[in-house]
Design a protein around this nucleic acid. Structure first.
Lengths: 148, 148
DNA sequence: ATAAATGCAAATCTTTTGCCATCTC
DNA sequence: GAGATGGCAAAAGATTTGCATTTAT
Protein backbone atom coordinates (compact mmCIF):
# COMPACT_ATOMS: atom_id res chain seq x y z
CA UNK A 1 0.00 0.00 0.00
CA UNK A 2 1.13 3.51 -0.74
CA UNK A 3 1.53 5.92 2.09
CA UNK A 4 -1.34 8.40 2.14
CA UNK A 5 -0.72 12.03 1.34
CA UNK A 6 -1.61 12.99 4.89
CA UNK A 7 0.95 10.57 6.28
CA UNK A 8 3.59 11.84 3.90
CA UNK A 9 2.94 15.38 4.97
CA UNK A 10 3.25 14.30 8.59
CA UNK A 11 6.58 12.72 7.88
CA UNK A 12 7.56 15.88 6.10
CA UNK A 13 6.65 18.10 9.02
CA UNK A 14 8.45 15.98 11.58
CA UNK A 15 11.54 15.65 9.48
CA UNK A 16 11.67 19.41 8.94
CA UNK A 17 11.29 20.07 12.63
CA UNK A 18 13.88 17.44 13.38
CA UNK A 19 16.36 19.18 11.08
CA UNK A 20 15.48 22.69 12.17
CA UNK A 21 14.03 23.55 8.78
CA UNK A 22 11.39 26.24 9.00
CA UNK A 23 7.93 25.15 7.92
CA UNK A 24 7.24 27.94 5.51
CA UNK A 25 4.12 28.17 3.45
CA UNK A 26 6.04 27.74 0.19
CA UNK A 27 7.82 24.67 1.52
CA UNK A 28 4.58 23.00 2.46
CA UNK A 29 3.00 23.75 -0.89
CA UNK A 30 6.04 22.58 -2.84
CA UNK A 31 6.31 19.37 -0.91
CA UNK A 32 2.63 18.71 -1.17
CA UNK A 33 2.79 19.17 -4.93
CA UNK A 34 5.47 16.52 -4.99
CA UNK A 35 3.91 14.15 -2.53
CA UNK A 36 0.49 14.32 -4.14
CA UNK A 37 1.59 12.97 -7.48
CA UNK A 38 3.45 10.01 -8.83
CA UNK A 39 4.10 11.65 -12.15
CA UNK A 40 7.75 12.36 -11.43
CA UNK A 41 7.50 16.02 -12.34
CA UNK A 42 10.42 18.15 -13.37
CA UNK A 43 11.39 21.15 -11.26
CA UNK A 44 9.70 23.33 -13.86
CA UNK A 45 6.52 21.32 -13.60
CA UNK A 46 6.55 21.61 -9.83
CA UNK A 47 7.00 25.34 -10.22
CA UNK A 48 3.99 25.56 -12.53
CA UNK A 49 1.82 23.64 -10.11
CA UNK A 50 2.88 25.59 -7.08
CA UNK A 51 2.35 28.84 -8.90
CA UNK A 52 -1.36 28.13 -8.94
CA UNK A 53 -1.59 28.62 -5.21
CA UNK A 54 1.37 30.96 -4.75
CA UNK A 55 1.60 33.02 -7.94
CA UNK A 56 4.48 35.08 -6.60
CA UNK A 57 6.73 32.13 -5.89
CA UNK A 58 10.13 32.09 -7.54
CA UNK A 59 11.61 29.27 -9.53
CA UNK A 60 14.79 29.64 -7.52
CA UNK A 61 12.81 28.88 -4.38
CA UNK A 62 11.54 25.70 -5.95
CA UNK A 63 15.04 24.64 -6.85
CA UNK A 64 16.41 25.53 -3.45
CA UNK A 65 13.76 23.50 -1.72
CA UNK A 66 14.09 20.52 -3.98
CA UNK A 67 17.71 20.53 -2.95
CA UNK A 68 16.89 20.77 0.71
CA UNK A 69 14.34 17.99 0.43
CA UNK A 70 16.85 15.74 -1.24
CA UNK A 71 19.40 16.51 1.44
CA UNK A 72 16.80 15.80 4.08
CA UNK A 73 16.02 12.46 2.47
CA UNK A 74 12.50 13.57 1.71
CA UNK A 75 12.93 13.27 -2.00
CA UNK A 76 14.89 11.28 -4.51
CA UNK A 77 15.69 11.96 -8.07
CA UNK A 78 14.56 9.13 -10.26
CA UNK A 79 18.07 9.23 -11.59
CA UNK A 80 19.84 10.32 -8.51
CA UNK A 81 22.78 8.44 -9.80
CA UNK A 82 24.75 10.66 -12.07
CA UNK A 83 25.06 14.39 -11.90
CA UNK A 84 24.77 14.84 -15.62
CA UNK A 85 24.34 12.96 -18.82
CA UNK A 86 26.59 9.94 -19.04
CA UNK A 87 27.34 8.08 -22.23
CA UNK A 88 27.85 4.44 -22.91
CA UNK A 89 29.15 2.90 -26.11
CA UNK A 90 28.67 -0.62 -24.81
CA UNK A 91 25.69 -1.83 -26.81
CA UNK A 92 25.59 -5.30 -25.35
CA UNK A 93 22.80 -5.65 -22.86
CA UNK A 94 24.29 -5.08 -19.47
CA UNK A 95 23.62 -3.66 -16.07
CA UNK A 96 25.37 -1.10 -13.91
CA UNK A 97 27.07 -0.92 -10.58
CA UNK A 98 26.61 2.59 -9.30
CA UNK A 99 28.56 3.91 -6.37
CA UNK A 100 26.24 6.08 -4.33
CA UNK A 101 29.19 8.02 -3.01
CA UNK A 102 31.54 8.82 -5.87
CA UNK A 103 28.89 8.23 -8.55
CA UNK A 104 31.12 6.00 -10.58
CA UNK A 105 29.33 3.68 -12.94
CA UNK A 106 30.66 0.26 -13.80
CA UNK A 107 29.22 -2.12 -16.33
CA UNK A 108 28.39 -5.65 -15.35
CA UNK A 109 27.45 -8.26 -17.91
CA UNK A 110 23.81 -9.13 -18.17
CA UNK A 111 24.31 -12.65 -16.93
CA UNK A 112 25.95 -11.48 -13.71
CA UNK A 113 22.44 -10.97 -12.46
CA UNK A 114 19.86 -13.66 -12.12
CA UNK A 115 17.14 -13.05 -14.71
CA UNK A 116 14.69 -10.45 -13.49
CA UNK A 117 11.06 -11.44 -13.50
CA UNK A 118 7.80 -9.74 -12.68
CA UNK A 119 5.84 -11.47 -9.97
CA UNK A 120 2.58 -12.51 -11.56
CA UNK A 121 0.75 -10.21 -13.92
CA UNK A 122 2.45 -7.45 -15.89
CA UNK A 123 1.09 -4.18 -14.55
CA UNK A 124 -1.46 -2.41 -16.70
CA UNK A 125 -0.91 -3.38 -20.27
CA UNK A 126 2.72 -2.43 -20.21
CA UNK A 127 4.64 -4.27 -22.89
CA UNK A 128 7.96 -5.22 -21.38
CA UNK A 129 11.00 -5.03 -23.61
CA UNK A 130 13.88 -5.40 -21.23
CA UNK A 131 15.10 -4.82 -17.71
CA UNK A 132 17.72 -2.41 -16.59
CA UNK A 133 19.22 -3.15 -13.23
CA UNK A 134 21.21 -0.64 -11.26
CA UNK A 135 23.09 -2.13 -8.38
CA UNK A 136 23.56 0.65 -5.86
CA UNK A 137 26.19 0.57 -3.19
CA UNK A 138 29.76 1.51 -2.40
CA UNK A 139 32.59 0.82 -4.79
CA UNK A 140 35.74 -0.80 -3.41
CA UNK A 141 37.46 2.54 -3.09
CA UNK A 142 34.67 4.36 -1.28
CA UNK A 143 33.93 1.36 0.91
CA UNK A 144 37.47 1.27 2.23
CA UNK A 145 37.62 5.05 2.61
CA UNK A 146 34.79 4.65 5.12
CA UNK A 147 37.15 3.06 7.58
CA UNK A 148 39.15 6.24 8.02
CA UNK B 1 33.34 -11.30 -23.38
CA UNK B 2 33.37 -7.65 -24.32
CA UNK B 3 33.54 -6.71 -27.94
CA UNK B 4 37.01 -5.55 -28.87
CA UNK B 5 37.63 -1.94 -29.78
CA UNK B 6 38.49 -2.98 -33.31
CA UNK B 7 35.21 -4.80 -33.68
CA UNK B 8 33.30 -1.85 -32.30
CA UNK B 9 34.95 0.44 -34.78
CA UNK B 10 34.03 -1.96 -37.55
CA UNK B 11 30.43 -1.90 -36.44
CA UNK B 12 30.66 1.84 -36.32
CA UNK B 13 31.97 2.14 -39.85
CA UNK B 14 29.42 -0.21 -41.34
CA UNK B 15 26.55 1.43 -39.56
CA UNK B 16 27.67 4.88 -40.72
CA UNK B 17 27.95 3.70 -44.29
CA UNK B 18 24.60 1.98 -43.99
CA UNK B 19 23.00 5.22 -42.88
CA UNK B 20 24.85 7.42 -45.32
CA UNK B 21 26.74 9.17 -42.56
CA UNK B 22 30.06 10.53 -43.74
CA UNK B 23 33.08 8.97 -42.07
CA UNK B 24 34.80 12.15 -41.04
CA UNK B 25 37.99 12.25 -39.08
CA UNK B 26 36.27 13.93 -36.12
CA UNK B 27 33.54 11.32 -36.11
CA UNK B 28 36.00 8.48 -35.98
CA UNK B 29 37.99 10.06 -33.20
CA UNK B 30 34.90 10.90 -31.17
CA UNK B 31 33.49 7.44 -31.48
CA UNK B 32 36.77 5.84 -30.70
CA UNK B 33 37.07 7.92 -27.56
CA UNK B 34 33.70 6.57 -26.52
CA UNK B 35 34.23 3.01 -27.57
CA UNK B 36 37.63 2.76 -25.96
CA UNK B 37 36.44 3.46 -22.44
CA UNK B 38 33.85 2.15 -20.06
CA UNK B 39 34.03 5.21 -17.87
CA UNK B 40 30.75 6.65 -19.07
CA UNK B 41 32.19 10.04 -19.87
CA UNK B 42 30.18 13.21 -20.09
CA UNK B 43 30.05 15.11 -23.38
CA UNK B 44 32.53 17.56 -21.91
CA UNK B 45 34.89 14.74 -21.01
CA UNK B 46 34.65 13.34 -24.51
CA UNK B 47 35.44 16.79 -25.83
CA UNK B 48 38.53 17.03 -23.67
CA UNK B 49 39.79 13.66 -24.81
CA UNK B 50 39.16 14.30 -28.46
CA UNK B 51 40.83 17.68 -28.24
CA UNK B 52 44.11 15.92 -27.63
CA UNK B 53 44.20 14.59 -31.16
CA UNK B 54 42.11 17.31 -32.82
CA UNK B 55 42.78 20.52 -30.89
CA UNK B 56 40.60 22.57 -33.21
CA UNK B 57 37.48 20.48 -32.69
CA UNK B 58 34.41 22.25 -31.45
CA UNK B 59 32.27 21.24 -28.50
CA UNK B 60 29.23 21.67 -30.70
CA UNK B 61 30.58 19.02 -33.03
CA UNK B 62 30.93 16.63 -30.16
CA UNK B 63 27.34 17.26 -29.11
CA UNK B 64 26.05 16.96 -32.65
CA UNK B 65 27.79 13.66 -33.12
CA UNK B 66 26.73 12.23 -29.81
CA UNK B 67 23.21 12.94 -30.99
CA UNK B 68 23.78 11.27 -34.32
CA UNK B 69 25.34 8.25 -32.67
CA UNK B 70 22.39 7.88 -30.37
CA UNK B 71 20.02 8.15 -33.29
CA UNK B 72 22.04 5.58 -35.14
CA UNK B 73 21.85 3.23 -32.20
CA UNK B 74 25.60 3.38 -31.75
CA UNK B 75 25.41 4.90 -28.32
CA UNK B 76 23.11 4.94 -25.33
CA UNK B 77 22.81 7.33 -22.50
CA UNK B 78 23.16 5.57 -19.21
CA UNK B 79 19.99 7.37 -18.32
CA UNK B 80 18.43 7.48 -21.70
CA UNK B 81 15.15 7.40 -19.94
CA UNK B 82 14.14 10.89 -19.00
CA UNK B 83 14.99 14.05 -20.82
CA UNK B 84 15.71 15.94 -17.64
CA UNK B 85 15.79 15.59 -13.91
CA UNK B 86 12.73 13.86 -12.57
CA UNK B 87 11.65 13.89 -8.96
CA UNK B 88 10.06 11.30 -6.78
CA UNK B 89 8.58 11.80 -3.36
CA UNK B 90 7.84 8.12 -2.95
CA UNK B 91 10.43 7.03 -0.42
CA UNK B 92 9.34 3.44 -0.21
CA UNK B 93 11.69 1.19 -2.08
CA UNK B 94 10.21 0.65 -5.46
CA UNK B 95 11.04 0.15 -9.09
CA UNK B 96 10.04 1.91 -12.26
CA UNK B 97 8.25 1.13 -15.46
CA UNK B 98 9.68 3.39 -18.11
CA UNK B 99 8.03 3.83 -21.47
CA UNK B 100 10.76 4.06 -24.06
CA UNK B 101 8.47 6.02 -26.33
CA UNK B 102 6.69 8.67 -24.28
CA UNK B 103 9.23 8.53 -21.43
CA UNK B 104 6.54 8.20 -18.81
CA UNK B 105 7.71 6.74 -15.53
CA UNK B 106 5.44 4.63 -13.36
CA UNK B 107 6.24 3.29 -9.94
CA UNK B 108 5.86 -0.37 -9.22
CA UNK B 109 6.12 -1.76 -5.73
CA UNK B 110 9.32 -3.52 -4.83
CA UNK B 111 7.63 -6.86 -4.45
CA UNK B 112 6.23 -6.78 -7.97
CA UNK B 113 9.62 -7.98 -9.04
CA UNK B 114 11.21 -11.19 -7.99
CA UNK B 115 14.17 -10.40 -5.74
CA UNK B 116 17.21 -9.52 -7.78
CA UNK B 117 20.37 -11.46 -7.07
CA UNK B 118 23.89 -11.42 -8.32
CA UNK B 119 25.01 -14.68 -9.84
CA UNK B 120 27.89 -15.86 -7.73
CA UNK B 121 30.51 -13.46 -6.45
CA UNK B 122 29.91 -9.76 -6.09
CA UNK B 123 32.18 -8.03 -8.60
CA UNK B 124 35.28 -6.36 -7.25
CA UNK B 125 34.71 -5.46 -3.67
CA UNK B 126 31.56 -3.55 -4.39
CA UNK B 127 29.38 -3.36 -1.32
CA UNK B 128 25.82 -3.78 -2.50
CA UNK B 129 23.16 -1.70 -0.80
CA UNK B 130 20.14 -2.14 -2.98
CA UNK B 131 18.91 -2.80 -6.48
CA UNK B 132 17.07 -0.44 -8.72
CA UNK B 133 15.19 -2.06 -11.53
CA UNK B 134 13.93 -0.16 -14.53
CA UNK B 135 11.49 -2.10 -16.61
CA UNK B 136 11.72 -0.70 -20.12
CA UNK B 137 9.02 -1.11 -22.68
CA UNK B 138 5.87 0.43 -24.07
CA UNK B 139 3.13 1.76 -21.84
CA UNK B 140 -0.45 0.76 -22.63
CA UNK B 141 -1.06 3.97 -24.49
CA UNK B 142 2.01 3.85 -26.69
CA UNK B 143 1.65 0.15 -27.30
CA UNK B 144 -1.85 0.61 -28.70
CA UNK B 145 -0.84 3.69 -30.69
CA UNK B 146 1.54 1.40 -32.53
CA UNK B 147 -1.35 -0.30 -34.28
CA UNK B 148 -2.33 2.85 -36.18
C1' DA C 1 29.46 18.41 -57.80
C1' DT C 2 26.43 17.62 -54.15
C1' DA C 3 25.10 16.84 -49.85
C1' DA C 4 26.66 16.47 -45.37
C1' DA C 5 29.64 17.93 -41.58
C1' DT C 6 32.59 21.26 -39.16
C1' DG C 7 33.61 25.41 -36.45
C1' DC C 8 32.26 29.42 -34.49
C1' DA C 9 29.27 32.46 -32.15
C1' DA C 10 25.02 33.38 -30.48
C1' DA C 11 20.85 31.62 -28.51
C1' DT C 12 18.35 28.78 -25.37
C1' DC C 13 17.53 26.13 -21.34
C1' DT C 14 18.54 24.54 -16.78
C1' DT C 15 20.28 25.28 -12.38
C1' DT C 16 22.81 28.03 -8.94
C1' DT C 17 24.19 32.14 -6.38
C1' DG C 18 24.23 36.71 -3.93
C1' DC C 19 21.84 39.88 -1.58
C1' DC C 20 18.31 42.27 0.86
C1' DA C 21 13.61 41.96 2.61
C1' DT C 22 10.68 38.90 5.12
C1' DC C 23 9.13 35.28 7.86
C1' DT C 24 9.46 31.40 11.39
C1' DC C 25 10.61 30.00 15.81
C1' DG D 1 15.34 39.27 17.74
C1' DA D 2 18.29 35.88 15.50
C1' DG D 3 18.74 32.93 12.03
C1' DA D 4 16.63 30.73 8.20
C1' DT D 5 14.08 31.50 3.93
C1' DG D 6 11.97 33.87 -0.11
C1' DG D 7 12.22 36.71 -4.21
C1' DC D 8 14.65 38.82 -7.68
C1' DA D 9 18.14 39.39 -10.91
C1' DA D 10 22.40 38.05 -12.44
C1' DA D 11 25.67 34.25 -13.15
C1' DA D 12 27.08 29.87 -14.42
C1' DG D 13 26.53 25.54 -16.94
C1' DA D 14 24.75 22.60 -20.38
C1' DT D 15 23.01 21.93 -24.86
C1' DT D 16 21.25 23.53 -29.33
C1' DT D 17 21.03 26.30 -33.51
C1' DG D 18 22.23 29.18 -37.70
C1' DC D 19 25.29 29.99 -41.00
C1' DA D 20 29.42 30.29 -43.83
C1' DT D 21 33.25 27.20 -44.94
C1' DT D 22 35.18 22.80 -45.61
C1' DT D 23 35.05 17.85 -46.48
C1' DA D 24 33.48 13.14 -47.88
C1' DT D 25 31.51 10.56 -51.31
Amino acid sequence: MQKSLARRMDTFRSRCTELGMALTHQRLVIYEALAATDEHPTPEAVYERVRKSIPSISLATVYKNIRSFEDAGLLRQVNLLHESVRLDANLDNHHHLVCVQCKSVTDIPEDAIAPVRMNGHAPGKFRIQRYNVEVLGLCAHCASARHS
